[in-house]
Design a protein around this nucleic acid. Structure first.
Length: 969
RNA sequence: GGGUGAUUAGCUCAGUGGUAGAGCGCUUCGUUCACAUCGAAGAUGUCAGAAGUUCGAAUCUUCUAUCACCCA
């Protein structure tokens, strides 16, 4: 064997071997009926592996490998989502390099290019996950756009089918509706986005105060002076209202001014009007609690079509909504009937001349300059405020009035809440459970339509409504807020046509667009009715929301669906609790009436070592692939696992990773030692628990039993860090530090029987280490496993052990702990007395009791070797210059007359005594308190008594040693 | 403004009522035949502060301070 594990060379070789053997396929190594299924949180098809993925998938892989080794019928389902905006963005960026735009192509042509991109670049993250060691069943790799029209060969699958059927199902159940609502509009991508895709960004801005003249000669008294109590002492008469705004350009769409109903300054104005400068529109003054008398003048301009709060006020008070922008957030006034209505022609003409087609921010500048020139700019204040931005485009979001599709979340939310309350679904840690519930209990409608080309086109066809008993066909203007066209929602075009023909009672023809359909109206004598399909696509998260059923083959009644659904555990980041977890819960219950999984493990963020979020702009990103190159996948995985304390962010440093790389090397070298001593190649049939006679072997077998239980307990509770830390302490601290050392005298100088027993035990112990470590460190453990000839299976399919603490032999346990304490005591005394490390010295012992004597006799060779002692002599009186080592049941002495410094030895003993006294006073204090004995559990009291007795014995031994020193002066 | 969490060794963090822990770093010693990606020994704590509950509090309760994140 080499001196270290060559991760770079071995990892791909081992991974390929696993794949070739079909080791990760659903059901591989299944030995029982229980199933275990994890759905990967699908990464974006545009994505590449970052630390968050590495963390997330390491935890999933641990659970998957653990269950597979335990014989569960296991499926880790991989896949990617189609990432509507992100993918379209990537492809458009490529086109831009050739000086082309999306709109230079037809929708079909563009989609062909997207698929081409997907086929060449979309598999990046799959290969990266393989480098991490992820044991997904890649033969089942899913994609949220698979099966969509236009998908090229090799993109098999029926996910599209599932998405469409879920939409139709939810539509038919009344959970989905279309409506003209204010939505978050991204002017860059020219699509609606959901409120979750909006980021609030704090920005320095301005607050402009504008004067809106009162109509019809109205005035009010505006306070200008106050006394110390705040009582108004002077007012002035004003014939205008001052309103403040951070977005002056929206004034073009103002339709009212709101004041608080109790604001005495304005009550007489309610129902009266102000005149909108520039436009000349009459603005109704309305009363609404939204207007805060304390803020500014207490009067607020109302733009229902361009502000969410104003929209709500408009709904309550009946204000018109006037859209004054186009989809690029430029001002759109020409031909805008809503805008012109009721306004003087001159004003309208001037606005169109100056502002039509102008970007919103240029329009703002022009309006402010004009206001200043014309005297209706009251003032400008600096203001820092939140501005909504698109999380992809990074441009300011525009509240925008359009027709969109919504999931009526109120109707589907309850089962998702109940399931968590009643324990059907566990979300851990608890803080994330609270976040989940809080969000669902205050759920808002979910806007699911996107004005994109890449995505699942909504399966709804529109046509005119039958108006009256005569069957007159009527279609409301698309800009009108009243009335929707007739909708035919079906999974296929044929069904939609059939349904429409039944409705109209005449043949139906599908045309490309609404414009084509309405070109010559809907004459009663027409031979056919023209219908057209909704152009919008569905939010990517809508398709991700049905990931559990969609990947398993629903709506078909597949074997996989029957076997693995509901799935078991979902492991995901806290950042997509709303985006994904909550929506999966709602949708699975809405569509199939079952929970998607029984447990959700939410993990935190991976940060840099200073606790900063990793970001490209800060340049503090650690690339998991670089780390794997440098330290190996096992080290990266172990690090993430050891740091995965629930609910806490991980601060990742390279030192830590190097430390766990060293751990792998340690394990490697223990195996190398075993190989050199004939323990690795011990015949397979002997690699089992030996009927050990040697205390050392009995002891380590018991320790293996303990660690197996600890690891299973930890993993069962999703305490990944406990599992990793326990294994680290066991393998390094117990096996390598002690057992390997203890074995040396037996392997090198033992009888043939002792040698054989120890070889077999060591082989077994190392096998158990490999098995238990494999879920966390799959590569190095598999490599070591296969270093043994004639294995029946690869380690990935080895049986997970079921023994436990029943393997512990209490006598052996006690004895080895005693041996360790003797060795540590001697080593410590030697080091502090500056005895040269290599020097072998004699040792004395007094007060050796029967148990101690038996323990010594059985373990003399290894104590003498490890403590570097060359003889033991019983001696009631230690000679002058003896260093004392007190242990339970004996006092050992190192006669070091030539070397010892009496003062130093005295200081050493006194320090030990001081520490002991502190513990003793605590123990005595507790036992002397009568309430302790009364209230504390009996075993605690007993434990305390025993502890006190042991400490008192040690105290006596140290005091005796000090007395001897004192005699010597 | 609302919510959720955090504060323990120089650093990063475990630790859900019973003797304060780990890794890294640091100090001293050591190239003895698994491993210097190593071994041995060692130093380091008002468990943020205050009050309370309890025989007993890092742990439970309340308040204060500071920090972080999420939602408005």
């Amino acid at each position: 064997m080499e001196k270290t594990f060559n991760a770079a060379e071995a990892e791909s070789r081992i991974y390929d071997a696993w794949e070739q053997a079909g080791a990760f396929k659903a059901g591989a190594n299944a030995k029982r009926d229980d199933t275990f299924c994890i759905m990967i949180p699908p990464p974006n098809v545009t994505g590449s592996l970052h630390m968050g993925h590495a963390f997330n998938n390491t935890l999933q892989d641990i659970l998957t490998r653990w269950h597979r080794m335990r014989g569960f019928d296991t499926l880790w389902q991989p896949g990617q989502d189609h990432a509507g905006i992100a993918t379209q963005m990537v492809v458009e960026r490529d086109l831009a390099k050739e000086g082309k735009r999306r709109t230079d192509f037809t929708r079909q042509e563009f989609l062909k290019k997207v698929w081409e991109w997907k086929q060449t670049s979309g598999g990046t993250i799959i290969n990266q996950l393989k480098r991490l060691g992820a044991s997904c069943d890649w033969s089942r790799n899913a994609f949220t756009m698979s099966g969509a029209p236009g998908a090229p060969k090799g993109e098999d699958g029926n996910f599209h089918d599932a998405v469409i059927r879920v939409f139709v199902d939810m539509y038919n159940k009344g959970y989905i509706y279309r409506g003209k609502r204010l939505v978050n509009w991204d002017p860059h991508f020219e699509t609606a986005i959901s409120d979750l895709e909006v980021e609030q960004v704090e920005q320095d801005g301005k607050m402009w105060r504008l004067r809106y003249p009162l109509a019809d000669g109205e005035t009010y008294q505006h306070p200008v002076e106050w006394d110390e109590d705040g009582t108004v002492t002077a007012t002035e008469t004003r014939d205008y209202l001052t309103v403040a705004t951070t977005r002056p350009e929206t004034m073009l769409g103002d339709t009212g001014v709101a004041v608080h109903p109790d604001d005495a300054r304005y009550t007489h104005l309610i129902g009266k009007h102000a005149i909108l400068p520039l436009v000349g529109r009459r603005l109704r003054i309305v009363a609404d609690d939204y207007a805060d008398p304390e803020k500014g003048t207490g009067a607020v301009k109302m733009t229902p079509a361009h502000d969410f709060n104003d929209w709500a006020v408009g709904e309550r008070t009946g204000l018109r909504a006037i859209n004054v922008m186009n989809t690029k957030a430029a001002i759109a006034l020409r031909g805008n009937a809503d805008f012109a209505e009721g306004c003087p022609d001159d004003d309208i003409a001037r606005c169109i001349e100056a502002l039509d087609g102008i970007d919103r921010y240029e329009a703002r500048d022009w309006i402010i300059q004009t206001a200043e020139a014309e005297g209706w700019l009251d003032g400008i204040d600096a203001d820092r405020h939140m501005v909504p931005h698109g999380d992809r485009s990074k441009v300011a979001i525009e509240p925008y009035l359009t027709d969109q599709w919504f999931v009526d979340t109120q109707k589907v939310v309850q089962p998702a809440i109940d399931a968590v309350h009643n324990g059907d679904v566990t979300i851990m840690p608890d803080q994330d459970r609270k976040v989940y519930l809080h969000w669902l209990e205050n759920i808002e409608p979910w806007c699911i339509s996107r004005q994109l080309w890449w995505g699942h086109q909504i399966p709804v066809w529109f046509g005119p409504e039958k108006q009256d008993s005569n069957g007159t066909l009527f279609l409301a203007a698309s800009s009108s807020s009243a009335g929707q066209p007739k909708q035919f929602c079906h999974a296929t075009e044929a069904e939609a046509v059939a349904s429409a023909e039944a409705y109209y009672g005449k043949p139906v023809r599908i045309v490309a667009s609404r414009n084509e359909a309405v070109s010559d109206g809907f004459p009663m004598d027409a031979a056919e009715v023209k219908i057209w399909r909704e152009e919008d696509v569905l939010d990517t998260w809508f398709s991700s929301g049905l990931w559990p059923i969609g990947t398993l083959g629903w709506p078909e009644d597949t074997e996989a669906l029957n076997k693995y659904f509901p799935t078991d555990v979902l492991i995901t980041g806290f950042d997509i609790i709303f985006f994904w977890v909550a929506r999966m819960m709602m949708m699975q219950y809405a569509v199939v009436g079952q929970k998607p999984f029984h447990t959700v493990y939410v993990h935190a963020l991976v940060r840099d070592e200073k606790g900063k979020k990793m970001s490209k702009s800060l340049g503090n990103v650690l690339d998991p692939l670089d780390l794997i190159d440098e330290y190996g996948a096992d080290a990266v995985r172990f690090t993430l696992t050891a740091m995965a304390a629930m609910g806490r962010d991980l601060k990742l440093s390279k030192d830590r990773i190097a430390g766990y790389r060293n751990f792998g090397t340690k394990l490697w070298n223990a195996a190398r030692f075993a190989e050199m001593n004939g323990a690795i190649s011990a015949p397979t049939q002997y690699r089992q628990i030996t009927d050990a006679k040697q205390t050392v072997n009995k002891w380590i077998i018991g320790e293996v039993g303990r660690i197996r239980e600890d690891v299973d307990t930890a993993l069962s509770a999703y305490r990944f860090n406990d599992a990793a830390n326990a294994l680290y302490a066991f393998v390094w601290g117990k096996v390598c530090d002690w057992y390997v050392e203890f074995s040396k005298p037996l392997l090198m100088d033992g009888t043939p029987e002792e040698q054989a027993e120890t070889r077999t035990t060591m082989a077994w112990v190392l096998d158990q280490c490999l098995i238990l470590l494999h879920p966390i460190m799959p590569f190095v453990t598999e490599e070591l496993w296969q270093a043994t000839p004639n294995r029946e299976t690869m380690l990935v399919h080895a049986d997970w052990p079921e023994y436990g603490a029943d393997l512990v032999n209490p006598e052996a346990d006690r004895e080895m702990n005693w041996v360790i304490s003797v060795i540590e005591g001697v080593r410590s005394a030697r080091a502090q007395m500056h005895v040269p490390a290599g020097l072998k010295i004699p040792m004395l012992v007094s007060d050796l009791d029967a148990v101690g004597r038996a323990a010594w006799d059985r373990n003399e060779a290894l104590i003498m070797k490890l403590a570097r002692i060359d003889s033991l002599t019983e001696s009631a009186d230690f000679p002058k210059g003896t260093v004392t080592v007190p242990v339970e049941g004996a006092t050992f002495g190192l006669p070091l007359a030539d070397i010892i410094d009496v003062d130093e030895e005295k200081a050493r003993l006194q320090k030990a005594l001081a520490k002991l006294e502190k513990e003793l006073s605590g123990l005595r204090g507790r036992l002397n308190n009568p309430k302790f004995a009364q209230s504390a559990p009996a075993e605690v009291v007993e434990e305390t008594r025993e502890n006190l007795a042991a400490r008192e014995e040690e105290e006596a031994r140290i005091n005796a040693a000090l007395a001897r020193l004192a005699e010597l002066g």
